[in-house]
């Protein structure tokens, strides 16, 4: 050691503790800001990669798995308006009760349903898919576009049951190119809503952002004029 050289004096212990505390507070603040920024930026582009949230809880746990997969009910059996108008419509309690006056004794969820029916109340479902107010989405037009007898399957890109909107021209998995398909209205729902029949709790599968809509509109030669959806 050379005399007169700079020497780092050892800081006192209480100063070290203060530095440590300040540093950790600073780190926490930075981490929180980074998380919020990540949430906002990622949710702007696509689904948020942090705090994404799970499927919302419903007042009555309605299992689509039992009703669609096991009983084989058609989507349009309950969502009757989907082929007739803008909204797909949620069935009235009376439709549930047409079976559940007889079936499902002992289940707490069905007791809840019967209680609501006895009070002549409505079920306050939590909405899962919501479009902003300035968007007009017409279920009828979209269902009509993809259902019916479609002459030619133009390309097959997805061999699994997961049908994605970008490959909407191939509705049915396992179809051959050039095959004529007869697609029911309920065969088209999964394009946007995912395979609801396998969901115990309904969740939003696609981002349903404008780019999502416009990509599909371009792919399917649908109009992309602003007044198609915004008015």
């Amino acid at each position: 050691m050379i005399p007169g050289d700079f020497q780092f004096s050892k800081p006192p212990k209480n100063k070290l503790i203060l530095l440590g505390v300040l540093g950790s507070i600073g780190f926490i603040v930075f981490a929180v800001i980074a998380l919020i920024a990540t949430f906002h930026i990622s949710s702007w582009i696509d689904k948020p990669i942090v705090f994404a949230g799970e499927a919302p809880d419903q007042p009555i746990e309605f299992p689509h798995t039992i009703h669609v997969q096991e009983l084989g009910l058609d989507c349009t059996f309950c969502h009757t308006n989907v082929t007739k108008g803008a909204s797909a419509s949620i069935p009235a309690v009376n439709l549930c009760m047409s079976c559940h006056t007889q079936l499902g004794d002992g289940s707490t969820e069905i007791e809840k349903l019967r209680e609501i029916h006895a009070k002549k109340d409505v079920i306050q479902w939590t909405r899962v898919h919501r479009m902003p107010d300035h968007v007009r989405f017409i279920h009828e037009a979209h269902v009509k576009r993809f259902s019916g007898t479609r002459l030619v399957v133009e390309k097959i890109t997805d061999s699994t049951n997961q049908i994605r909107l970008t490959e909407a021209k191939t509705i049915k998995a396992g179809a051959k190119i050039g095959e004529t398909l007869d697609i029911a209205a309920s065969g088209t729902c999964s394009i946007c809503h995912g395979d609801v029949s396998k969901m115990h709790k309904v969740e939003q599968v696609r981002t349903l952002k404008m780019s999502d809509c416009v990509d599909c509109h371009r792919e399917n030669d649908a109009p992309t004029d602003c007044t198609t959806c915004h008015y």
Partner: peptide, 15 residues
Amino acid sequence: TYHNDQGLNVQVYNR
């Protein structure tokens, strides 16, 4: 605001 192919002067509220 722009002119669309149907001769309408369109106002896009979200823009």
